[in-house]
Design a binder for these strands. Structure first.
Lengths: 205, 205
DNA sequence: CGCGGGCTTTACTGGTCGGTCTAGCAAAGC
DNA sequence: GCTTTGCTAGACCGACCAGTAAAGCCCGCG
């Protein structure tokens, strides 16, 4: 099957449904049958494309990351002033969480963190993927902060360490929003982040 | 059965084993049978004490919190200087994670965060418990920071908000240590925390 | 002594789990 | 036109799942 036919459609639908369901619920509570039914794909096809539920999950999350990367590349474009990149990043997170909340009534948290949290001690492939994505997110932040330092809008310091600190804060905050099932927690993202990186600009916007 | 006999022993063993197993693996991957076997308790007894797996889990984590509270009350004793309380808190986290890592080869992360991350969107009772424990931890931090401000060792600001920021950072960092399965990540806890709260003391110790 | 209730034990349920197997299909390539 | 290839369909598997039923044990209490 060379060109885009119904064929590839099945695989793609499996990837998307799997990510959607596991994000909304959890890896453990989502069954292969459920993924198949929701995708309109039969089990035989499932195991034609993927060797196991774990393998599908990795593929599904990598596929989701590839989509996210397009958005993030835009948000973190070197064309924008560094602090605007951060603002756009925060706004993107908020939009993402809000959208799901309005559809499902639940703050879903970060899919990668949730999956990593559930399975890091049990599934090495999934652990590794979660780790790599965490590193990639940090790299966006790092270059942004480095640019901000060059422009003098934040104090100079080790950009890699600062990016990690900022990343940890963001991850913890989104996690808290999920646990509280409360979007308002996200309001503290921007002011807190600005304080952490020492941005001189006033916290209000 | 009034006094401490084998009886209460069964219930307590269930609570402890459940917490231990779910922490080490995940809620979804641990079965009632497994918990029973590991505790040396028969399934009938399990359902004599608890109405469901979910109810046991809540009880197990509340029991664990009650134990932790004793330790934390000591660590956050108003008798110690505020920054020493923080140091002791960080050291306690590190010891906890290290101990499990040496036994099992895995950084287990924070049990409450992991459980909340897995089940907040599915089990309201568990979500609520995770939320409450997060609030309680913040309260320890808040009073510590307030004292630190009174003593002038950190700049004055809203202690509740600062405590939350610090808490988010700590949660995110422990989560990262779990995903990386690397205790070294925890080394960044203290310097990062000190930077966030604006502690004047040098970062090295 | 016997009764009652808290706890244990064992056997069991119906359903779901992840995964397998094989027959069949449609279309591409020869 | 025949075969190969990539995919679908759906029946099927044993294991395991959370949870139930009921009989029995032990001990304090009257």
């Amino acid at each position: 099957m060379l060109i885009g036919m119904k064929v590839c459609d099945s695989k793609l639908r499996l990837l998307q449904t799997a990510h959607e369901l596991i994000w909304r619920q959890s890896y453990g509570s989502v069954g292969v049958d459920q993924i198949c039914e929701q995708s309109g794909v039969k089990k035989g096809s499932f195991y034609h494309f993927f060797r196991s539920k774990s393998e599908l999950t990795v593929a599904a999350y990598e596929n989701y990351w590839e989509q996210s990367r397009l958005t993030l590349d835009g948000i973190f474009s070197a064309q924008s002033p560094p602090l605007e990149r951060l603002d756009a990043y925060f706004e993107n997170i908020r939009r993402n969480q809000t959208e799901h909340f309005e559809r499902r009534g639940r703050v879903p948290g970060c899919p990668f963190v949730s999956l990593g949290s559930e399975l890091s001690t049990q599934d090495e492939a999934i652990r590794l993927m979660a780790q790599q994505i965490s590193e990639r997110k940090c790299r966006y932040l790092e270059s942004t902060l480095r640019d901000a330092m060059d422009e003098g809008v934040i104090p100079s310091q080790d950009p890699k360490l600062l990016a990690q600190e900022l990343h940890f804060y963001i991850v913890g905050l989104i996690q808290e929003a999920k646990i509280c099932n409360n979007l308002a927690v996200l309001n503290r993202m921007k002011p807190g982040a600005y304080r952490i990186i020492g941005a001189l600009r006033a916290v209000v916007t």
